[in-house]
């Protein structure tokens, strides 16, 4: 056995590592906070000034298998080092995007009525898209886990979005209750990406979209 590293040296080195970590954490704090309230340019098809980057990026991935840098959800689900945010070929993902027309409906509804860049904007999209009252379920899946949720519709409006199952890498509190509130507020599945939890955001948007497809009149 070699002579063990002295405790004092271990302590000094550990403090140095902790200092470097803290510097990085603090330095990246503004960007993380900024990204949590804005839409990062994840996809060439994204409109940075409109809500729903997660959904937009997801739509892009469904139609074109673009690179990961452009669209995280388009990254390979089957391995290599680019699988983090890749969507699997699950039926939920496919069905969630099988109808681009439905997506266009949502898009136009939001584009017409939602002030850009503000999650607190008052949506009028509920008047454009009618939903049947009831409780509808949806699932979003990618290699990082899955999210199952229910969308409760009353009087044609989304009134609650309880998450019923959470198996994502990220802690649930990263997006809950923020994203369910956004869905209720904006009455759409097109939501803001939560920085540091893009995979969870995509899955959430995917699950809400799937549920809303079932709820469409």
């Amino acid at each position: 056995m070699p002579v063990k590293m002295g405790k004092r040296l271990v302590a000094v080195c550990s403090v140095a590592v902790a200092t470097i970590y803290s510097a990085g954490y603090i330095y990246t704090l503004p960007s993380v906070q900024a990204q949590s309230s804005a839409v990062p340019p994840l996809s060439p098809t994204n409109n940075n000034t409109t809500p729903g980057a997660a959904a937009a990026a997801h739509s892009a991935s469904a139609s074109a298998n673009s690179g990961q840098g452009a669209s995280p959800s388009a990254s390979s689900a089957s391995g290599s080092s680019s699988g983090k945010h890749g969507t699997s070929s699950s039926t939920s993902a496919k069905s969630g995007h099988s109808s681009s027309g439905a997506s266009a409906n949502h898009s136009s509804a939001n584009g017409a009525s939602t002030p850009s860049g503000k999650s607190s904007s008052k949506p009028a999209s509920a008047t454009a898209v009618k939903y049947k009252d009831g409780t509808y379920t949806g699932v979003g899946t990618n290699p990082y886990g899955s999210i199952a949720l229910s969308v409760v519709i009353k009087h044609g409006k989304i009134v609650s979005v309880p998450i019923t199952q959470w198996t994502m890498h990220y802690p649930q509190y990263v997006i809950d209750p923020q994203l369910p509130k956004e869905v209720i507020s904006m009455q759409t599945w097109r939501i803001y990406i939560v920085s540091g939890a893009t995979a969870s955001t995509y899955n959430f948007a995917q699950a809400v979209y799937q549920a809303l497809q079932k709820a469409k009149a």
Partner: peptide, 20 residues
């Protein structure tokens, strides 16, 4: 990476320095 603004939009140094 953070200083030099390197990294992917989806995988930032800020992400790597935080849970999970």
């Amino acid at each position: 990476m953070a200083f030099l603004h390197l990294g992917l939009p989806s995988d930032t140094p800020g992400d790597a320095l935080r849970a999970p």
